[in-house]
Design a protein around this nucleic acid. Structure first.
Lengths: 237, 237
DNA sequence: CCCTCAAAGCTACCTAGGTAGCATTTATAA
DNA sequence: TTATAAATGCTACCTAGGTAGCTTTGAGGG
């Protein structure tokens, strides 16, 4: 990597804070940075080509990246993950698990470290302890996926939407962190439905006094009512 | 472990064939068996108590075990995984990822090795290479989950059912392996719907000449028609 | 400043799939 | 054997959510 010293420090310190590289020596961390290429992905950059997804491993330094699947038959997106600081992708290609087809899009300006898969494999071989961290990380992600699938398969859309809002709300400030500023279409992709349906239920929530909408921003006005949405389940049947 | 020599050999050889323990020394594998307790879970045994799920790690030697979530509000099951020989569970508890609530049920008589989580952690610490195998294994499972969620969120039930049948059919013999003998209710749990709906579509498939039904057994009569079900998607809209 | 386009709001329609209920068949056990 | 329970097949009903199409709003760029 050939960059300014300040940038380098910035990357270095971010990696230090990551649980993935916590037990890696300073020396090894520097070696990792040596084989990395830093890239800036501006907002709305869409990464589609396989050189990125199949042969490159990525570390997200700052920003927000959406991992999604595209279904051509009904023209719909499904967001599998929202990656934040210190997330890594794509472990699938790292493990030679080649058949999964996902796309990436930067939802905010993002700094990304790119590492060729063979180089990364080499580095991991010399730092075998990271396998443990990666395992822990992957299991956590799998837990997220597991809950996701249970939601999509067993819960109706008002419940899923309420859960999405609730989970992403900072309980004290009632502000949103990760899903702040997303369009209804993006919200739909996050819970497995379309923008029209999301909009419909947001209007319902508004009427019920759960939230208020003001240009590109959803504000929860009654957190208790929101929470009730999660618990009521389908008892109306 | 205190068992007959033959059983011991049987377990040992099964583990040797597992990709999870491929690079483990004979000595370590014996140590693993030493801290294991062998159990036989008869068909339809349902494991619910947390001593099994939360504090014990399991290796499935022979048999078939269903990992499922139960939703009390609408009284429905969702099968997340069908575990076969040499599968392991539950990695979540091993990684201290305590919040996932799943149940286990033996669909066939199963031989299981049970290992206390602290002992397993100790053993893994002395055999750090297994973290790599476990990582690879977990990533593969995650890939399965990822495809599952895409199916459930974006595809209709005829497609999901057709895919389930197709994936679990031995293409040459047209026999089923893993889902053979499952009830419509079980099939529903595998694709995220109810038995009534599964039955409805099986009747449709029958009328279309895709399959035949004879007491607890589904036989595909036209594999091409079945495959078309997968590809036609929702073009009828 | 206006122009453009995406996002949001809303109406109307339709169908896949969830539900309820029952009758029939098959399996398991007493 | 009979009895009990489970699995299957089938009917009828209903509603959540997908779709189409349009208007309104507002943000960002020239």
């Amino acid at each position: 990597m050939n960059i300014g010293l300040e940038k380098y420090r910035h990357y270095y310190e971010t990696l230090t804070e990551s649980e993935l590289f916590r037990h890696v020596t300073h020396n090894s961390l520097n070696q990792l940075l040596e084989i990395s290429a830093a890239q800036n992905w501006p907002k709305k950059t869409c990464i589609l080509d396989t050189s990125h997804t199949l042969y490159t491993f990525h570390i997200l330094i700052t920003g927000k990246i959406k991992v999604y699947h595209f279904d051509s038959s009904n023209d719909r997106l499904l967001t599998l993950f929202l990656l934040q600081d210190n997330d890594v992708f794509d472990i699938f290609s790292l493990m030679g698990c080649g058949t999964h087809k996902v796309y990436y899009e930067a939802l905010e300006d993002s700094e990304v470290l790119c590492i060729q898969v063979p180089l990364m494999k080499e580095w991991m071989k010399e730092n075998p302890l990271v396998h443990k961290s990666f395992l822990s990380y992957t299991v956590q992600k799998m837990n997220v996926l597991e809950r996701f699938i249970i939601n999509v398969a067993l819960e109706d859309i008002p419940t899923r939407l309420a859960r999405l809002l609730y989970n992403n709300m900072d309980k004290s400030s009632r502000q949103y962190q990760s899903i702040c500023g997303l369009s209804h279409k993006e919200l739909g992709a996050l819970i497995g439905t379309t923008r029209a349906v999301v909009n419909r239920h947001i209007q319902n929530f508004k009427e019920e006094g759960i939230l208020e909408v003001s240009r590109n921003q959803i504000t929860i006005t009654n957190i208790h009512l929101l929470k009730e949405k999660l618990l009521e389940k389908r008892s109306s049947y």
